[in-house]
């Protein structure tokens, strides 16, 4: 299974490390030279310097035979374009985009990204669950105390 990752920030770094350890074939694309050089020390030929939305770079990275492209940069527009190029130009089977602005989740899906992931949304959902749990605990306590007094 061949996976292309776009964006070598923290998520990209740990994802590359995990996937390589699991035996996946991985290419990580990173735009910033300084970041790339650090990544290169650890990942060697599995990391490429360049713009993951550049057609030639994607081509040279073997996008044509990739099973999966995951775009995890801090810019939703770059993640969208990387996924669209992967899917429509190179026929990559599945694309995953990190969504920084949770409002863009639906938009990216409507524009053809297969899977979107918003850490803001996930944490917000957990907070909502926590709030709901606290409210129900509070209601139970209130009901309980009414029961005692009444």
């Amino acid at each position: 299974m061949y996976v292309i990752l776009v964006g070598g920030g923290k998520v990209g770094y740990y994802l590359t490390r995990t996937l390589l350890a699991e035996g996946f074939e991985v290419t990580l694309i990173e735009k910033e030279r300084a970041v790339f050089e650090k990544l290169f020390q650890e990942f060697k030929d599995s990391v490429v310097l360049g713009d993951g939305t550049d057609i030639r770079l994607l081509h040279n990275s073997g996008a044509g035979r990739a099973d999966l492209l995951v775009s995890i940069t801090g810019h939703d527009q770059d993640n969208l374009v990387a996924c669209q190029l992967a899917k429509r130009k190179f026929g990559v089977g599945h694309t995953i985009a990190r969504v920084n602005n949770p409002k863009n989740e639906n938009i990216l899906r409507r524009l053809g990204v297969d899977t979107t992931l918003s850490s803001t949304r996930i944490i917000f959902n957990l907070i909502e669950q926590e709030v709901a749990a606290q409210v129900s605990r509070l209601q139970e306590t209130e009901a309980g105390s009414r029961g005692i007094n009444g």
Partner: peptide
């Protein structure tokens, strides 16, 4: 920024 233009254009067109 090309990608900003591409995304914004698609939002205007598709959404």
């Amino acid at each position: 920024d090309d990608n900003t233009n591409i995304m914004a254009a698609q939002v205007a067109k598709e959404i």
